[in-house]
Design a protein around this nucleic acid. Structure first.
Lengths: 194, 194
DNA sequence: TCTTTTTTTGAGCACTCGCTCAAAACCGAG
DNA sequence: CTCGGTTTTGAGCGAGTGCTCAAAAAAAGA
């Protein structure tokens, strides 16, 4: 088989494995099984299992970049830009790309060698989100249960990213970020009331 | 040694390991080494490594409950209640308890048996956050870079919690929660301007 | 066709893991 | 001190891991 086809099959196998089984079970034998080839090919083509997983992450990042650029080019005002961001986020969730991201990020927490690689591949996400930030926020209300759920989620996420960036992440900085988050959330939100 | 002392040493060793090395490296041999005893004691006293880690999570949750209850009892109005919540969150970060939480949550993603156990021990956190929710929010502005960082963090966290709860987490629900989050963030934030 | 290079394979090495188990050590009661 | 139950130990089993390697298979060039 041509090199490109083999690499393609392995990347697809890696993405499927990350999505369905997670990083902990993304072993060479498991991925090669899905790709229908020998596990040694992973080391021949990508050097290591982590090398393959990073290549899979590259593909996810590139797909997102292309999709987002296309939507941005069509946007004529802020409202459309925000809608484009929402669309890309939603598509990533449905494609399972968010799950792949989360797996690689949490894996990087326990793997110093993986950490800078994953952090570098995360930058496009952040830059793209920054682009959607203009305009003034408006206050909104929501259900307390959802608010409670949300705040727990937010601090978990901030903690994960802080570890990734080798940021000591003192409590004060986390709370400052939490505060600044609110204007973006208002920007994203079309909801009203409880 | 008395049973209680041994269990105490093992729980402390488990917490230190989770904090410094993460779930992936929280092996029986590693934890027992820190506790200064044989690895077989983990299975004698806790049945399994995960059993010990859940016991460690129990301790973290109980400590938080006690600390928070004490602060709530002293609060006379909403402002003091919110301040109490901030204090507990900040203390958890400094104690490394947040890191332990994140490790167990991300580990639960790839371990179906662990998932409901961790989810159950997470409930107190959510309930406590819900208690701080009253009053009306005010709009705030922040730096775009921090907003970008924050929104990425938030969606990661929502995704993690959605997996934990066996929630299919459709994109619409995530965005609704993101919207409702803003009022809580305003509540937590004492910041102003860029 | 024969030769050279690229691609693929299966066996296997060295390691770590969770966990078991029989035996040793400990310790309080009689 | 002796006994009996509790606690601790070290060795070890079976399984899974990343990765290597010599050799086989396939593809490409002459």
């Amino acid at each position: 088989m041509a090199t490109a086809e083999t690499r393609e099959a392995l990347v697809e196998g890696a993405l499927a494995t990350l999505r369905e089984k997670g990083y902990a079970h993304a072993s060479a034998r498991e991925i090669a099984g899905r790709a229908g080839c020998n596990q040694a090919l992973i080391f021949y083509h990508f050097g290591s299992v982590d090398g393959l997983l990073l290549a899979a992450l590259d593909r996810v990042a590139e797909l997102r970049r292309v999709r987002y650029q296309a939507l941005v080019d069509e946007s004529r005002n802020l409202k459309e830009l925000v809608a484009a961001a929402r669309t890309v986020f939603a598509e990533d969730l449905e494609l399972g790309h968010t799950a792949v991201l989360v797996e690689m990020i949490t894996a990087a927490q326990a793997n110093a060698a993986l950490r800078p690689e994953v952090a570098a591949r995360l930058r496009p996400w952040r830059g793209f989100a920054a682009e959607a930030l203009r305009g003034t926020p408006a206050a909104l209300l929501g259900r307390p249960e959802e608010l409670a759920h949300g705040v727990v989620a937010m601090f978990l996420g901030l903690e994960l990213l802080a570890v990734l960036d080798d940021d000591p992440a003192p409590a004060d900085a986390l709370f400052e970020r939490a505060g600044s988050l609110s204007s973006l959330l208002d920007l994203f939100s079309l909801r009203r009331r409880s």
